[in-house]
């Protein structure tokens, strides 16, 4: 975190020198807190419908493609790992690679990789949706369809938003003459968001595909 501080350059005489909290990072975390409560509403919808019509869940969950969902879950978790390596590169203010080895990659290369992995997740989920619709599970088919598509759909929209944010972050790294604190902060807060969306998906996966 040392390079996202906004401490004054000259040491003040009264108080000791401290790393002031980064307002963008703290603000992003508070906003993600509100996102926790947004998804709380979605989880509440899911559990309530599951509680009121258990017979629908007994039948409809059999058409879920668990191996596909498990695969895209692993891919999404991996994209979080690569995004974190992008953060490490951003924290050493390294935008571009110095060689082809991953240890020499900059923030741009790691975020492109994260973007591709995240995009594969969205493609996998779209495929799952297509299969489910062909099995007559749709948003308006019954309570199960509504619960499934509203929870995973809002999560999918968050993933797509994260992908757009990643492209913007990569674009900023290309646009800046010097990759500095501002760009590092952008990278860090986008990674916070991405990790958050990842954790929410793990919860959704466990509830929808594992718990059923």
């Amino acid at each position: 975190m040392e390079d996202v501080t906004s401490s004054s350059l000259s040491r003040p005489t009264g108080a000791p020198l401290i790393n002031r909290p980064n307002v963008v990072a703290v603000g992003t975390i508070v906003w993600l807190g509100s996102e926790v409560m947004f998804f709380a509403g979605l989880f509440a919808i899911y559990f309530t419908l599951r509680g009121t019509s258990p017979e629908l869940w007994a039948g409809e969950t059999s058409v879920l493609n668990v191996p596909l969902a498990a695969t895209i879950t692993v891919i999404l978790v991996l994209s979080s790992v690569t995004a974190q390596f992008g953060v490490f590169a951003a924290e050493r203010h390294q935008a571009r690679r110095t060689g082809w080895k991953p240890s020499q990659w900059g923030m741009i290369e790691w975020f492109w990789l994260s973007y591709i992995l995240g995009a594969i997740f969205v493609v996998g989920q779209s495929y799952e949706y297509a299969i489910l619709v062909s099995e007559h599970v749709s948003l308006s088919s019954n309570a199960y369809g509504s619960a499934f598509y509203i929870t995973t759909g809002f999560h999918g929209l968050h993933v797509i938003g994260g992908l757009i944010a990643m492209l913007f972050t990569i674009g900023r790294a290309y646009a800046a003459k010097n990759f500095g604190r501002k760009e590092a902060t952008t990278t860090i807060v986008v990674s916070y968001y991405w990790h958050f969306v990842d954790v929410v998906w793990i919860g959704l996966f466990l509830i929808i595909y594992f718990l059923r």
Partner: peptide, 26 residues
């Protein structure tokens, strides 16, 4: 964040001056 700060913020100290809390905020 508090641990990474390495001390109390000026606004949390009784002995801090106004200009101690006047760094570049972001």
């Amino acid at each position: 964040v508090y641990k990474a700060q390495g001390g109390e913020l000026p606004e949390d100290r009784y002995d801090a001056n106004i200009d101690d809390g006047d760094p570049e905020m972001g």
